[in-house]
Nucleic acid binder design. Structure first.
Length: 618
RNA sequence: GCCCCGGUAGCUUAGCCCGGUAUAGCGGCGGCCUUGUAAGCCGCAGGCCGCGGGUUCGAAUCCCGCCCGGGGCUCCA
C-alpha cells in the first residue's frame, strides 16, 4: 500500500469518466474541500488487514502532528506497478476508510474506478508532503534508509569520564572549572547544529583576506585569496608531514564514484540526499563525502600480510563534499566542500587496533598543538557501546587519561553504527558552539563490506579492523578554530594573531622614506634566505599609517627602517605578541623567528614583496 | 518549504516611517608632504538605490510580484 499525503489549502476534483470494470457510483459534479489532508492511495498486491492497520496508525500519527482530522481518501493507481486486483483493491480501500472513521477522523472519499480531474494547493510547511509505503512484510514505513530508522531508535546515555576512570552521569557531574566541557555537553545533547548569530571568525576571514564566500558557486564552497591559500597550504603540508612521520602512506583517489557501485550503496545510505550528484552520459556519480571510498577500494585490491599490519593509508582530500543544510553553513565552520586529512589503519585484531588507536590519539594531540591549538582550546567526546566499555575499561580510561581532562561520554546499549568506539576533539567557539576537529573510529564492519582482507599466519584470509582518523579535522575548520581563538584573545584584552609560522607576512619592513626602500628589499631577501617571509611597505604613506596597517594585518614582527638601522645594523623590532619594541640584531631576529618556525613547513609569500604592488582582494 | 531581517559606490554605510533621482568613511586615482612605531593634507572619479510591475506630475522612499543573502523553524526523499 502506498500513501502520498498532501496537507492542502484546498482540493477540487471532478469525475470525468469510468475507467475500469469495478467502479463506485458517484455524482458527476465538481467537489471542493478546504483545508484538508489529501491521501492519494494505492492498494497493492498482498495488502491485507495488517497493512491497513499500519497505514491507519501512520496516518493518525501524522494527523496528530499537523493538528488536523479532515482527510480525503483518494484512490490513485499511479504509485505502484504491482496493483492489487480491482475487486480486492476496492475492498481494502473500503476497509481503510472505515478504520479511519473508527479512529475519529473526518473522512471524505472520492470514487474508485474513475478518471478524475484534480486540482490542489499544497500548504508550504515541512510536513505538508509525505510519502508512506507499507508492505505486509515490514508493515512499516518504507523509503527510509535503515541507518536513519536506527538513528531514531537510538537511545544515548550521557556520562562524563574523568582521567582517573570515574564514570559520572552527566546530570550529576560538577562542571565547575570545566566550562568548555559543559558547553560541549549542552551542545551535543541538544543535537542542534543551527547557528543563531554570525560567529566572529567570519568578519576576520574576510578582512584578513583569508577566505570568503564565492557567490558564483554553491553555498559552502569558499574562495581563498593569496594569504588564506598560503595559510591553508601550510596547515595541509604540516598535517601531511606528521601523518607520514607516523607511518601513513600518502595516496590519491578520485573525487567521484558510481552511485550504483555495490560496496558504496549501503554506506551512502548513511547520508541520504546529502551528496552532490554528477551526471555523465547515462551514469550518475556522487562526489565523495570522505576519503573512505577511494581508500577502501584501493585496500580491496591490495595484498596484505599480517606481518605488514597495521597498514596505514593516508589521503588529504581536496575536496570532500557534503550538502549540509544551508542553515548550518556559516563562515568556515561547516562547509559543503572541505579539505580533509584522513588516515585509515588496517589492524589485525582488537588488541592491535587499540594499540594503534593510542598512537593516533597522541598524534592528533600533537598535530593540533603544532597548529596552535592547545588542550585548553578543545574538549573530548567519546562514544561507544556499553558492551565495549565493560570489556575495555582500561583502554577507554587510558584515552581520557592521556587527554588529561574529563571527557563527555555517549553510550549506547547496542551497536547501531559500523564502529564500536569513536572519539573526537571539539573546539568550542565564541558562541559556545562545538565543532569536531580530530577524530578516530574503530570500525568493525567495512572491511567485510568492501572485501578488504589480509592473510594471517596460517594462510587464511581475514578481515582487518579499520581505524578512521582525521588527526586535525577539516583544514578549513582548523582555520576557523584559529580565528575564533584569536578573537577570544582579543575579547580578553590581548592581541589577536595567528601562530608565527602561519602568518603570511612574518616580518614587515617599513622604510622611513623611499630613500630606504632599496635597503629594505635587500634586508627582506636576506630574511628569505633564512626561510622567513618578509615584505616591504614601500607605499608613500606615513610611518604611523604603515605601522597601523601592519598591526591590523596581524604581522608578528615589524621593523621601521631608517638612517639608524642602516648605520648600526641594530633593529627596533616591534613584536606583536608582547606588544613591545625590542632592539635586535639581524641574527637575533632570525633566531627568534626561526625558533617559531622550527619543525613546521615553509612556503614563500605568494604576494608581491612590495606593498605598493599588491592588489586588494576585496 | 514557511516565518523574521536585510539588499544603496570595490567595502562599510546614512537617507526610507513623513515621496522631490542620494550621505559619509575606508579603499582607488591625482597632487602636496620624504616622513621614526596604530589613521598627514587637498582634490577627483565611482551609484540602473537587487530585479520587474503598479500608484503618482514625480519613487531609494508607498503598494504588488520575483530574485539573492543572513537568521529561525522544520524536514533530514
Amino acid at each position: 500500500m502506498k500513501l502520498l499525503i498532501y496537507h492542502t489549502d484546498f482540493v477540487e476534483y471532478e469525475p470525468v469518466e469510468r475507467e475500469g470494470r469495478v467502479v463506485e457510483e458517484t455524482e458527476m459534479t465538481r467537489k471542493r474541500f478546504e483545508d484538508i489532508v489529501l491521501i492519494l492511495t494505492t492498494i497493492e498486491e498482498g495488502d491485507d488487514d495488517t497493512v491497513v492497520d499500519k497505514a491507519v496508525g501512520e496516518l493518525k500519527e501524522y494527523l496528530a502532528r499537523i493538528g488536523s482530522k479532515r482527510v480525503l481518501i483518494y484512490p490513485y493507481a499511479h504509485l505502484s506497478n504491482k496493483l492489487a486486483a480491482p475487486e480486492k483493491a476496492l475492498e481494502t480501500l473500503r476497509l481503510f476508510r472505515e478504520k479511519c472513521k473508527v479512529e475519529g477522523m473526518e473522512v471524505y472519499t472520492s470514487p474508485f474506478g474513475w478518471t478524475k480531474a484534480l486540482l490542489l494547493s499544497v500548504k508550504g510547511h515541512p510536513l505538508a508532503e509525505q510519502f508512506r509505503s507499507i508492505t505486509p512484510e515490514t508493515a512499516g514505513a518504507g523509503y527510509i534508509p535503515k541507518a536513519l530508522v536506527m538513528e531514531e531508535r537510538i537511545k544515548s546515555y550521557w556520562y562524563v569520564l574523568t582521567p582517573t576512570g570515574e564514570l559520572v552521569p552527566v546530570e550529576s557531574f560538577d562542571f565547575s572549572g570545566n566550562d568548555g566541557l559543559k558547553a560541549l555537553a549542552t551542545y551535543e545533547m541538544a543535537k542542534s547544529r543551527a547557528v543563531s548569530q554570525m560567529p566572529p571568525h567570519v568578519d576576520l576571514m574576510k578582512r584578513l583576506e583569508i577566505a570568503d564566500y564565492e557567490p558564483g558557486s554553491d553555498l559552502g564552497n569558499m574562495r581563498w585569496p593569496a594569504k588564506g591559500k598560503l595559510i591553508k597550504s601550510l596547515i595541509e603540508q604540516y598535517v601531511t608531514e606528521k601523518v607520514i612521520e607516523y607511518g601513513g602512506m600518502e595516496i590519491e583517489t578520485p573525487i567521484m564514484y558510481d552511485l550504483k557501485h555495490p560496496c558504496l550503496e549501503s554506506y551512502l545510505n548513511r547520508f541520504p540526499a546529502r551528496q552532490y550528484i554528477v551526471k555523465s552520459d547515462e551514469r550518475e556519480f556522487f562526489l565523495r563525502f570522505a576519503a573512505c571510498f577511494g581508500q577502501f577500494l584501493m585496500a580491496h585490491d591490495m595484498q596484505i600480510s599480517y606481518k605488514q599490519l597495521p597498514v596505514r593509508l593516508y589521503e588529504l582530500t581536496r575536496y570532500s563534499f557534503r550538502r549540509e543544510k544551508s542553515g548550518e553553513l556559516v563562515g568556515l565552520k561547516r562547509l559543503r566542500a572541505f579539505t580533509m586529512p584522513d588516515v585509515h589503519a588496517l589492524c589485525a585484531d582488537v588488541q592491535q587496533a587499540k594499540e594503534e588507536a593510542l598512537r593516533r590519539f597522541d598524534l592528533s594531540i600533537e598535530v593540533l598543538e603544532g597548529i596552535g591549538l592547545a588542550k585548553d582550546d578543545y574538549e573530548m567526546a567519546i562514544r561507544f557501546t556499553r558492551d565495549f566499555y565493560e570489556s575495555n575499561k582500561e583502554f577507554v580510561t587510558d584515552l581520557v587519561k592521556r587527554f588529561g581532562k574529563p571527557a563527555l561520554v555517549e553510550m549506547w546499549d547496542e551497536r547501531f553504527f559500523y564502529f564500536i568506539l569513536k572519539w573526537e576533539f571539539n573546539f568550542i567557539d565564541n558562541l559556545r558552539k562545538a565543532s569536531a576537529l580530530s577524530t578516530d573510529q574503530i570500525d568493525v564492519e567495512n572491511a567485510e563490506r568492501y572485501g578488504i582482507t589480509y592473510v594471517d599466519q596460517s594462510g587464511n584470509k581475514r578481515y582487518p579492523i579499520i581505524l578512521h582518523c582525521s588527526p586535525s579535522g577539516a583544514i578549513e575548520r582548523v582555520v576557523y578554530a584559529l580565528l575564533e581563538k584569536a578573537y577570544k584573545v582579543y575579547k580578553e584584552g590581548g592581541k589577536p594573531m595567528l601562530p608565527v609560522w602561519l602568518s603570511p607576512t612574518q616580518v614587515r619592513l617599513i622604510p622611513i622614506s623611499d630613500r630606504f626602500t632599496e635597503d629594505c628589499i635587500l634586508l627582506s631577501e636576506r630574511l628569505e634566505r633564512e626561510r622567513i617571509r618578509a615584505d616591504v611597505d614601500d607605499r608613500l604613506e606615513t610611518v604611523e599609517k604603515k605601522v597601523r596597517d601592519a598591526e591590523t594585518e596581524w604581522v608578528p614582527y615589524t621593523i621601521v627602517f631608517g638612517k639608524k638601522e642602516k648605520e648600526s645594523n641594530l633593529f627596533s623590532v616591534r613584536e606583536r605578541a608582547s606588544n613591545s619594541i625590542r632592539q635586535m640584531t639581524f641574527e637575533e631576529l632570525v633566531e627568534e623567528v626561526s625558533s617559531k618556525n622550527a619543525g613546521k613547513p615553509y612556503r614563500m609569500l605568494s604576494l608581491p614583496k612590495l606593498l605598493s604592488q599588491r592588489p586588494s582582494f576585496r
